[in-house]
Nucleic acid binder design. Structure first.
Lengths: 186, 186
DNA sequence: TCATTTTTATACCAATCGGTATTTTAAGTC
DNA sequence: GACTTAAAATACCGATTGGTATAAAAATGA
């Protein structure tokens, strides 16, 4: 019955549509397995969506952490983030993590706690990146690293969420570039 | 059976929670009316949510248009928008319009077209406001009014959406102020 | 007061949800 | 081949969804 294949099918379904709109029944049908098989493998819908999120984190989100930890300087890293959010084909239908976070009140407890865990890790990574830029002297006056990290994370989330709603990538890039210009102008 | 009371109850329910999480059954129960009565008055769930959105537009959204058309200059109007998004108590649980727009794929055709209508009107109002600021010479180089209007609208939407998720208003204000600083710095 | 019409309330509909009990099938093992 | 064990498929569960048919009640007109 191949659990990895089920995870791939579920991840793609959750990702392409909204997680809340994809039923367990539909996943079983798409994966060609029976419902008892799925429940034996993952325990519950919560177990499945959590497993999917784990897979997504290591297959996709890890790339964002790589960009942040690249140590290539403020300007260059911001450009890489803009490229990723605006034009990476994998973000064409949005980000599964952001979709889950946006509908967190519908998640089961396990998936929810994983979402919050990833959220905290992302904020920490953004903060570490900005702290390094501050240490290098590339930093506008009167802005805390904490606030900057929150701002940066939410602007990236906004841009990718807009891609999910079919917005023109060029427009998204324009808006995100404008939003992140607060880091490089003084 | 009082249709206005039903609209008030439904608006408050849609607004406080997510529209997709509020069933027709629940609204009937809260309003103390029978389901056939509601369907005779509004035709369908789509008819009800559209009527609710109409009411919301004239009771709440109109205030934003008033701010935008106040003609009090760029800086002052932006501050008023920041105040509204960050601290107006009516936005404490978010904006019903933004909640509907975020879940537009779940809306019926009538409600959906009304959402898009309001969206277009809002963009036009933002653009008119920014055009006036440009005519007054208060405008950064290399930014089109169109792009600025989209950016401004989305930043406001982001801020209010964050209020719905319980974010600290002071943090939201800080982020929104930072985002809108691109209009006043050169 | 009686009859008509309109509104209300109760009960129901088919579809779908997440989750399971039961039965059938298949795979080993001796 | 006979027996055991594990997996799979089907059928079912109660709850809830948007929507309606029908029966009871209330208001209206003569």
């Amino acid at each position: 019955m191949n659990a990895e294949n089920v995870l791939d099918v579920a991840m793609s379904a959750y990702w392409q549509n909204d997680p809340a709109d994809v039923s367990v029944n539909a996943i079983c049908q798409m994966a060609g397995i029976s419902k008892p098989s799925l429940y034996r493998a993952f325990g519950s819908e919560d177990g499945l969506s959590r497993a999917v999120l784990d897979r997504y984190a290591e297959q996709v989100l890890s790339d964002i952490f790589v960009i942040l930890q690249g140590g290539t300087g403020l300007h260059q890293t911001l450009d890489a983030l803009i490229d990723f959010a605006s034009d990476d084909p994998r973000m064409e239908t949005g980000c599964l993590f952001y979709k889950m976070r946006a509908g967190k009140h519908r998640l089961g407890p396990d998936t929810l706690s994983r979402v919050e865990e990833i959220d905290a890790a992302a904020r920490a990574a953004y903060a570490a990146f900005l702290q390094a830029a501050r240490d290098a002297g590339e930093w506008p006056d009167g802005l805390s690293v904490e606030a900057g990290a929150r701002y940066l994370g939410e602007q990236i989330a906004l841009a990718i969420t807009q891609r999910a709603s079919g917005e023109d990538p060029a427009r998204i890039r324009e808006m995100l570039t404008l939003a992140l210009s607060v880091f490089t102008r003084r």
